[in-house]
């Protein structure tokens, strides 16, 4: 199934609380446990872009408003 949307996560704003990963219904987000941002925190990233349905659950839950959501136009 082609992607209905995708998200961009500002890794410098992300604190790695994992709330977006937990609330993603299609499990397309993941926490990067091998790399850290400049604050020394793990950050979330979109691991599987094909699964994103642009439901905005991640951006609704994100405490630090680090997530921008894009939806396919047609």
């Amino acid at each position: 199934m082609p992607a209905k949307g995708y998200v961009e996560i500002d890794k410098e704003v992300c604190k790695g609380c994992n709330l977006c990963v937990l609330n993603c219904p299609t499990k397309c987000l993941a926490l990067n446990t091998t790399d850290t941002n400049s604050h020394g925190l793990h950050y979330a990233y979109q691991a599987d872009e094909e699964k994103c349905i642009a439901c905005m659950n991640c951006s609704v839950m994100c405490p630090d408003a680090a997530i921008t959501v894009y939806k396919k136009t047609e």
């Binding site: 995708y6 609380c17 405490p63 630090d64 680090a66 997530i67 921008t68 959501v69 396919k72 047609e74």
Partner: peptide, 30 residues
């Protein structure tokens, strides 16, 4: 932004770009 996509959510303008001091996962920030 990729072509064929529209932005449906971004950080609100009224929320300044200052990094919040709240602990990770704190609902104050939500």
């Amino acid at each position: 932004m990729k072509t064929g996509y529209e932005k449906i959510y971004e950080r609100p303008d009224t929320l300044l770009s200052t990094r919040m001091h709240y602990c990770p996962g704190c609902m104050h920030a939500i």
